[in-house]
Design a binder for these strands. Structure first.
Lengths: 231, 231
DNA sequence: GAGTGGTCTAGACCACCAT
DNA sequence: TGGTGGTCTAGACCACTCC
């Protein structure tokens, strides 16, 4: 057992015991002095916790303790936003763009009809001023584009239900993982080689039998957000 | 641009140009001298290449250059799970070990009781002679260790039900992603920087209300297997 | 035992963030 | 401007692998 592993373990225990009340660790110099080890060794211990997703470093500021309540519940009728609200965390949704597109083969193959155009909305989910997920939504309601265009924040499903009277429910969810693309990295503010969890959802329109109303592809920082399935 | 980034770039170019013919890098000391930098800085540069999956370090031996023939293709295999279920092909399970252990803090925290010992079973799921998932199971039934020890293949849940009369049902599943550890890489036959999908399941004993009978952590090759949730 | 990568220290300077 | 994390150096010792 090396010193840095030992220190990492102790720090983890301290974090679990909620010893650092303000949500930040003491400075590296202070921690190194406290444990009577060199700052380089302490930094190595901290990097272990960064890898484990327990803390995040903010250059020039401090080391942030990650709130582990950030789990994403996946059950039949749950919405992302709702789940976070339960745990008292409010995500912000930023619409990066909303436009009509000719769907790629990959996207159009999910829809049974052969749509010439789809609406493509790209959103970013942000918690505590930090981007968590990057989501591509594809919708077939091109005739209502002018209305959908006004979606700016909050839950897309909620907006569709309240402003367009379209109720979507989850049909299938497929989960995988991959390394983020350069664009993903940029938007998600990822620097090192952290993989993203890829969640693909197919949503059907409630009234119409099996009629696909939306598909979405989300890339989520796997170090900050967990996905939970309740059985 | 920091020194270590610069050096990493140069090393990457050297590797791409096939400068190191024998498949190994020169020693860290030699490289540091060559670039006229400190060995610690050189090590930081090398670690960047390790993260990028270009090299692999072998303690006591040398630094190995990874053969890049294994490229990461997600789309090509995207229907794998569905296909093998449809075609009735079932995975083979290999038990790597089964032993009594003192649980780590991380594992024991899931159980409500404070078990001094747990049974730890490590299995590998193999399809078509290719390892797909590496799974760690933790069970509290230490008093029946002698029986459980005889689990050699097939489904653990099936074995527990038929030989011990213990029926487990899924309580919660948590999905995330991470980079595989060296041991994961070895067992899953992973060479380059492909992430693994991490699935944590909590299983309760059917008859006893909320009594946790097993937790398992599986790491699955995200390039070969997708997880599908039907709603 | 020689050579390799892994850890650790002590100390310096720089880049970033807040005030 | 002071404090934080990020980089870098020089040098030491340890753990592992192979001959």
């Amino acid at each position: 057992m090396f010193i840095y592993q030992n220190i990492a373990k102790q720090l983890k225990m301290n974090i679990d015991e909620n010893l650092y009340k303000n949500g930040f660790l003491p400075s590296e110099t202070d921690l190194a002095n406290h444990f009577k080890i060199n700052r380089n060794t302490l930094r190595k211990a901290l990097n272990e916790l960064v890898k484990a997703g327990l803390i995040e470093k903010k250059q020039g500021k401090a080391t942030l303790i990650i709130d582990k309540n950030n789990t994403y519940l996946l059950s039949g009728c749950s919405h992302y936003t709702k789940n976070f609200k339960k745990s008292g965390i409010y995500p912000r949704t930023k619409v990066l763009f909303c436009k009509k597109i000719s769907p790629s083969l990959n996207v159009s193959s999910y829809f049974e009809q052969n749509y010439k155009y789809l609406i493509h909305i790209k959103t970013l989910r942000i918690i505590h001023n930090e981007p968590r997920s990057l989501i591509d939504h594809y919708l077939p309601f091109t005739d209502r584009y002018e209305e959908i265009k006004h979606f700016k924040t909050g839950s897309l499903h909620y907006f569709l239900q309240n402003h367009l009277g379209i109720k979507l429910t989850r049909k299938k969810t497929t989960i995988s993982a991959l390394m983020p693309s350069a664009i993903d990295k940029q938007h998600l503010n990822l620097k090192s080689n952290i993989p993203v969890t890829l969640v693909k959802t197919e949503n059907k329109i409630n009234n119409e039998e099996g009629f696909l109303g939306e598909i979405s592809f989300s890339r989520t920082r796997s170090d900050l957000v967990q996905i939970t399935v309740e059985h």
